[in-house]
Amino acid sequence: MKFLCPSDTLAPNSSRGFDIDGHKLLAVRRDGIAYFYRNRCPHRGVPLEWQPDHFLDASASLIQCATHGALFLIESGECIAGPCAGQSLTALPGREDEQGLWVEL
Results as ranks from 00 to 15, higher is better:
P83F: 03
R38N: 09
L62S: 05
V103R: 15
L71D: 00
K24F: 11
A34I: 04
A27N: 05
G86V: 09
E104I: 07
Y37R: 04
A58C: 13
S15Q: 03
S59R: 13
R30K: 08
I74V: 12
E104H: 13
I80S: 10
D8M: 08
L92Y: 01
I20K: 10
L4W: 07
F18Y: 14
D21F: 02
T90R: 06
L73T: 10
Q64G: 10
V46A: 15
A85P: 07
P83I: 03
C65H: 03
C5G: 08
G22C: 08
S59I: 02
N13G: 01
A60M: 08
L48S: 00
L10F: 01
G22Y: 12
D57N: 15
A11Q: 14
P83S: 14
P52H: 15
C5T: 15
P52M: 14
G82C: 09
S59Q: 14
C5N: 09
G100F: 13
D57H: 10
P6K: 11
G22N: 09
A58Y: 10
C84T: 06
L48N: 00
A70Q: 01
Q99H: 13
L73K: 12
A66D: 03
L73M: 11
A85N: 12
I80K: 14
Q64T: 15
A81G: 07
D57T: 11
P12T: 01
W50L: 12
H54T: 11
E104F: 10
D21R: 00
N13K: 02
T90Q: 12
R16Y: 04
I33S: 06
G45F: 15
S7D: 03
R95F: 11
L92N: 01
L89S: 10
G32Q: 04
R44I: 05
F3I: 02
Q87L: 15
L48R: 04
A58L: 14
H23E: 05
G22P: 05
G94D: 11
Y37W: 03
S7M: 03
T90H: 08
D97M: 08
F3T: 05
F72E: 07
R29F: 01
F72R: 04
T67F: 12
E75S: 06
L25H: 04
P12I: 00
E98L: 04
G69Y: 07
A66K: 02
S88G: 12
H54L: 08
G17C: 05
S88P: 03
P12Q: 05
R40G: 00
G86Q: 13
